[in-house]
Amino acid sequence: MAEKPRVATASLCGCFGCHMSLLDIDERILQLVDLVIFDRTPLTDIKTLGDCDLGLIEGGVANAENVEVLREFRRRCKSLVAVGACAVNGGIPAMRNQFSLAECLHESYRDGIGVHNPGIPNDPEIPLLLDQVHPIHEVVAIDYFLPGCPPSADAIWTFLTRFLEGRPIAFPYTQIHFD
């Protein structure tokens, strides 16, 4: 048998809720580790990305590092999936698009209630924020979309099993929701 498919995951501007939902497949994760090899992912803590068959992206694109990671995933992964509301449409973080970036930074670090030592962080190691948060399909081409906040463990499992078996991706009604 050929080598097992390689799977990578990343959380961009998300809350890690989608990764938690992936872990929520419970004991099925033992089946999953038999079926695939995990490449770069917070689950393995591997930091570098190799060539993969499948990339799962949680979160939208909010800063320069998100753009870099997302583009690298697109280069390295044969199929790329937008997992969860933030990756699909920007989600909750994109609510900051109602305000200018300066307004957001001033509220958080200068004028907001309870701010001590006001000052906008400018350490060169901190990735620069984009002026708006974007869904990932506005930055790179995406092959599959899995909505939900988060997508349920069952929805993720449906996707993974169908993908790995080479079957068309389709979900029962109750597994698709935008929230």
């Binding site: 937008a82 699909v88 920007g90 995406i142 909505p147 698709i176 935008f178």
Partner: peptide, 15 residues
């Protein structure tokens, strides 16, 4: 949107 099988917005958001 669920009924028609829409999974993602496809287009660029206006925000």
């Amino acid at each position: 949107a669920y009924y028609t099988g829409m999974l993602a917005p496809h287009f660029t958001h206006f925000f």
